[in-house]
Nucleic acid binder design. Structure first.
Ligand code: MG
Ligand code: MG
Length: 428
DNA sequence: TCTGGGGTCCTAGGACCC
DNA sequence: TCTGGGGTCCTAGGACCC
């Protein structure tokens, strides 16, 4: 742990200038429902649920604070949310709209630090270490404020106000000596909050909080811990390593010990290329008609391959995911042995995988496709294979992509190869 | 009570190779 | 004659996050 005063003159000649680290975590408050309330003022102050119609299959993706006050939570099944709160407005999600708002929010956030990590559509980390000593032209200076004693709070407040003024959305900001403390702090002060955990105060701050606030400690781990009377950080702080290890295994026991001591990673990571692309769909009712399932799979492969090409990537493996009426989920994977972004090729493999394990008696609840082992599309893989056929298939994809660029993915429907692919096909 | 859809990461067994 | 030991790839499944 770094304890020295960052503003003191450097001590030893070759010691790095070890500034006390400051990380901020910014998280949008009830993001999806806030966007809907912003765009439709009639929803302001009302219980709103985003996720689908009240009688649909699915779960709550976002609930306004008015809905949460009535007992709705994420991810509650929609039909149950309706039972708990029938007066709520149930809305389907509009994800491209939320992506646009997210991008605008991050345009504001990016002005508040040169080092920002976008962790998801609704949250990000900022490195504020440089703000305290006037190194690296701190953002504080650009905003015309002298450095007050509680500069992190002042800076967080100006960020909150800027996001609110420029996007209409509310964020909460947590500030601490590492990422995890900052994230737990932002959650702790929601909504419309700011929380700064002073260096050295971490153990005391965490002590009364439930262990379940730790990202990575989910339903299962929380149950195991609770069965051993470990519910709050205080319980973990006051128990021995062996008990933690019995609950969580060695790796997570060590990790939780460090977290409970207020230690944690500081570095922000740059944007990374996606490791997988997947699309799946749950039927409104369990489906017994295999042709319907095949058509759905065909469409899902089209969508996934389209997203793959738009990202400039090719895939090295195809998996088909299938969930039966009993909620049992199975995945069958095939490594291609080559890379492809070509719909016809990928669907041929997906269709074969599906035929291999299509259930004979059970109805199907969900079908999906997953592409993994992604690599940049360099255009040099096609030499090894049936390059004529691939060239034709690629031209088809490119032609359709041009229509999709104009009208979106749903702007065009195709069926080429849907039935041809039904018979078992050998080899790749 | 009924359990979405987009992801990441981890584990573990068997194949295969040296 | 009872039986190596890694390392890596492939596959399946599960916990977890937003
Ligand atoms: Mg949020
Ligand atoms: Mg979040």
């Amino acid at each position: 742990m770094i304890k020295q005063d960052p503003c003191a003159p450097a001590g030893k000649a070759d010691a790095p200038r070890a500034a006390r680290r400051v990380v901020a975590h910014v998280d949008l408050d009830a993001f999806f429902t806030s966007v809907e309330q912003l765009l439709n003022p009639a929803l302001a102050g009302q219980p709103v649920v985003v996720g689908g119609a009240a009688n649909q299959r699915g779960v709550v993706a976002s609930a306004s604070y008015e809905a949460r006050a009535r007992g709705v939570y994420v991810p509650m099944p929609l039909v149950r949310a309706y039972r708990v709160c029938p007066e709520a407005h149930f809305l389907p999600g509009r994800h491209s709209l939320y992506s646009d708002f997210s991008r605008r929010v991050f345009e504001v956030i990016n002005r508040f630090s040169p080092t920002v990590e976008r962790a998801s559509i609704d949250e990000g980390y900022l490195d504020w270490t440089a703000e305290q000593c006037g190194t690296h032209q701190p953002v504080t200076a650009r905003h015309g404020a002298a450095l007050p004693v509680h500069w992190p709070l002042a800076l967080a407040e100006s960020l909150r106000l800027a996001v609110l003024a420029e996007t209409g959305l509310s964020v909460s900001v947590g500030i601490g000596a590492n990422r995890l403390v900052a994230k737990i702090a932002s959650k702790h002060c929601k909504p419309r909050g700011i929380c700064h955990v002073a260096t050295g105060a971490e153990r005391a701050f965490l002590r009364p909080l439930p262990l379940a606030v730790v990202p990575g400690i989910g339903k299962r781990a929380t149950e195991v811990l609770a069965a051993n009377s470990l519910v709050r950080f205080a319980d973990a702080q006051d128990t021995d390593d062996a008990t933690l290890a019995r609950c969580l295994g060695d790796e997570w026991a060590r990790r939780l010990r460090r977290i409970a001591n207020g230690e944690g990673r500081v570095e922000l990571s740059p944007h990374e290329a996606p490791k997988g692309i997947s699309n799946e769909s749950t039927f409104r009712q369990d489906c017994r008609d295999l042709d319907t399932v095949r058509r759905t799979l065909y469409r899902l492969v089209e969508k996934a391959a389209w997203r793959l090409r738009r990202a400039g990537l090719v895939t090295g493996s195809v998996a088909v995911k299938l969930r039966t009426a009993d909620f049992r989920t199975r995945t069958h994977t095939r490594t291609l042995g080559y890379h492809s972004d070509c719909h016809a090729e990928l669907y041929r493999v997906a269709a074969q995988l599906f035929e291999d394990f299509a259930p004979r008696h059970q109805a199907i609840r969900l079908i999906g496709v997953q592409l993994a082992n992604l690599a940049p599309a360099t255009g040099c893989q096609l030499l090894l294979f049936d390059s004529d056929r691939r060239a034709v298939n690629q031209q088809v994809d490119r032609l359709l992509d041009r229509v999709r660029a104009q009208h979106g993915f749903s702007g065009i429907a195709t069926a080429a190869g849907l039935h041809a692919a039904r018979r078992p096909v050998r080899g790749g």
